[in-house]
Design a protein around this nucleic acid. Sequence first.
RNA 1: GCCCCGGUAGCUCAGCUGGAUAGAGCAACGGACUUCUAAUCCGUAGGUCGCGCGUUCGAAUCGCGCCCGGGGUACCA
Length: 588
Amino acid sequence: MICRSSARIGTGDMKNRTIEEDLSNWIRKAFETAFPGLIPENAPVEVVATANEEFGDYQCNAAMGLSKPLRKNPREIARAALDSCSLPDEISRAEIAGPGFINVFLSEGYLAEALRGMQEDDRLGVRSVGEGKTVIMDYSSPNVAKPMHIGHIRSTGIGNALDRLHRFLGYRVIADNHLGDWGTQFGLLIMGYRHFVDEKALLDHPVEELERIYVQSYQKSEEDPSWRDEAKKELVKLQQGDEENLALWKRFIELSLKEFSSIYERLGVTFDLYRGESYYNDRLPSLVEELKEKNLAVTSEGAQVVFLEEEKLPVCIVQKSDGGFNYATTDLATLESRIEEFDPDKIIYLTDERQQLHFKQIFAVASRLGWRADLAHVWFGLMRLKEGTFSTRQGNVIKLEQLMDEAESRAFEVVKVSSPDMPEAQQRDVAKSVGIGAVKYADLSQNPQSVVTFTWEKALALDGNSAPYLQYAYARIASVQDKYTERFPKSDLRAFPIRIEHELERRLAIRLLRFADTLFRAAEFYRPNLIADYLYDLAQVYSTFYQNVPFLKAEEGVRESRVQICGLVARTLKKGLDLLGIETPERI
RNA sequence: GCCCCGGUAGCUCAGCUGGAUAGAGCAACGGACUUCUAAUCCGUAGGUCGCGCGUUCGAAUCGCGCCCGGGGUACCA
């Protein structure tokens, strides 16, 4: 009843399709053959990874859903689909189970062949889907004169992971750090600088000092109205191009950037552009004019606003009644400039959850202006402390630097114990990779949209589901590979076939094959945590394999096969961690 | 008031967009290092998936209504 054919699912022009795409195409064809013209285009006739291994490697749940429209028992539908075509080489068997699930088991021969294909591909079987497309990534974007705190790990870490992922997928990525370098805080800052600054502190800890004088100036403005008026005057002078104030403003930015840069360096984050809000100042008046000309902006309560009733959104203010511009204006001007200069296919904005409405408005106005670019607002839940939200005013802010220092020093203590023979300089390097990796991973392994509660325990975890666990798995493999070349210096690994015989080899192979699907899904939903989940799962299976299955001590042939599988796991871990911005030392 | 999130093991979180018996880590308890790195592995224990009703072959997942927490809601960003 089920006959094997020698045909492969993939065809020449569809190279490098993922296993999920291949199987889904096959299963759809099977259903369409069994029920010609009766399967709707948009019906989810596809295959998904099974949650439980006893149900095979992939499963198709379509038969149940089709039961009603086809007026047939789901098991009969599944039977008919399977009988309508022969099994491709990839599949060793396909079974119908329960109410009508189709469980698909991949053949060991195919798995071995697929691993070989992955091994020979420097992209590990991930095709370059973004070739020829440009995407602008807007992330991190800290405010000048304010220290980066633990909350910035979210925008920066998630943004950078999506940045790296898109680059790997072949997109031309323009990472733009849209600094908060313009706004009402500068009046207070200038006043604070003139009256309270400690120049030495400003050189030693620029941002900390800037923040201090800002807070002091802010407090004074609360109790002293004349102070507030003075600050306002200074702000106006700045906006009108007063030389002295302009020079101060530039200095604040330079000092802040210098400090941000050192943080970015430690985090391994680089930007293509540092265009703050001020970069777009010149465009603000003409943008409002444009909106007025197109009858989009109208005067209401003295302000220029765009009504968005059709979109069921509140009004968007593009010019305040005092003539000033606000962040909606800036974001629109920024968008227009980006479209003009880069003609992007997509722009991805990373901000916290509070700006959802703001971006809905911006996107709505952009759409009315006829600006066509795929705009995505990727938001993440605010980071909180157990006691609640943190804020400068409450004085319970944990600085990013402090977190990184703590992470590195804790990692260093562990390295000293577990690798006592390692030279100290190397121990410090490892501690850096491990510590920073731990901090990043703690955040990246969570669903971006969930509200996260910061705990030192979790942010600095060095065991369990953590970056060091993955780095450790990687380092073990690196060590195995070195030992192999030491013991068998003349051996040509690749001359030996990859064999999938042991149950754990099979489980590893299945996971390795899912790498591409995982990356595509992570990019589609803007969720680096899918990559983290995947890597952790892979590393877990590997650790079990490592602990329970001999390889250097196995007989020749088995040994070479296993070492090659190890090599693929290593490359996949390395690439995956790299996409998360996490380093993989060869020894830890 | 309206809108958007979230509520899953003692704690911190996953749960592949409706699938089969809800999973990890930490913490707890019991085992495994003269061996390929024990930052590891194996095992035990731990659940009314906030509550109720509904949709259907099937709901942690979708809809409605409550309860609790967070955020937003015309000139801050």
